[in-house]
Simulated assay, not measured.
Amino acid sequence: MSQSIEEHTGARIARIRKQRGLTQQGLAMRSHVSKSLLSKVECGQKPASPALVAACARALGVSTSDLLGQPYAEELRRDRMDALIQPIREGMENWDIALDWETAPRPAALIRSDVRRALVRRRQAQYTDMVRDLPALIEESVHAVHTSTGEEQRLTYECLAGTFRCVFTVAWNFGYIDLATVALDRLAWTAPRADDPGLAAMHAYLRAQTTMSSGRYDLGIRVIDRALRDLDGQDARRPEGLEAMRGVMQLRAAVIAGRMKDRGLADARMAEARALARTTGELPDFGVTWGPTNVGVHAVAIASEMDDCERAIELAEDVHIPRGWTRSRAGHHWMDLGRSHAWTGDPEQALDCLHRARRIAPQQTRYHPTVRETVLALKRRERARSDSLARYAEWVGI
Rank of each mutant, 00 (worst) to 15 (best):
L206T: 04
L184D: 01
R216K: 13
Y205Q: 11
V170P: 00
D196R: 01
D178T: 12
D195R: 04
R186F: 02
G215P: 07
S213D: 15
G215I: 11
R207G: 13
G198A: 07
R165F: 07
W172K: 05
C166S: 14
R165N: 09
T190A: 15
L184G: 02
R193Q: 13
D195S: 11
L199T: 00
D195E: 12
M212V: 11
T190K: 07
Y205C: 07
T190Q: 03
R186Q: 11
R216W: 15
G175A: 10
I177D: 13
T190C: 11
Y217L: 14
A208I: 09
A201H: 07
A183D: 05
T211L: 10
G175E: 11
T211W: 07
D195V: 04
T190V: 08
D196N: 07
G215H: 13
A204K: 06
R193W: 10
N173K: 12
R165Q: 09
T169V: 09
T210V: 13
L179K: 04
A204L: 08
Q209A: 12
Y176T: 03
P192W: 04
A201F: 15
L199N: 02
L199P: 00
F168V: 01
R165G: 01
F168H: 01
V167L: 05
G175I: 07
G175S: 09
D185T: 08
D195N: 07
D196W: 00
R186E: 06
R216V: 11
R193L: 13
M212F: 09
D185C: 10
H203Q: 12
A183L: 06
S214N: 08
A180T: 09
A171F: 02
V167W: 00
N173F: 10
P192H: 05
A180Q: 12
G215S: 15
D178R: 13
F168M: 00
Y205E: 06
L206D: 04
L179T: 12
A208T: 09
A204H: 03
V167D: 01
V170T: 04
F168R: 01
L206W: 08
L187W: 00
Y217E: 11
G198Q: 08
Q209D: 14
A180R: 03
R186S: 05
A208G: 13
A188T: 05
Y176L: 04
Q209Y: 13
D196T: 02
T169N: 04
R207A: 15
D185W: 09
L199W: 04
P192Y: 03
W172H: 08
Q209H: 13
Y176R: 04
W172I: 01
M212T: 10
R207C: 15
Y176M: 08
A188I: 04
T169D: 10
L187A: 00
L187Q: 00
A194I: 03
R165H: 10
G175P: 05
A204W: 02
A183T: 01
T210R: 11
R193A: 08
T181P: 04
D218R: 11
M202H: 05
A183C: 09
A180H: 06
F168E: 00
L206N: 10
S213K: 13
P197T: 07
F168C: 01
Y176I: 02
A201I: 14
R193S: 04
F168T: 00
L184E: 02
P192K: 02
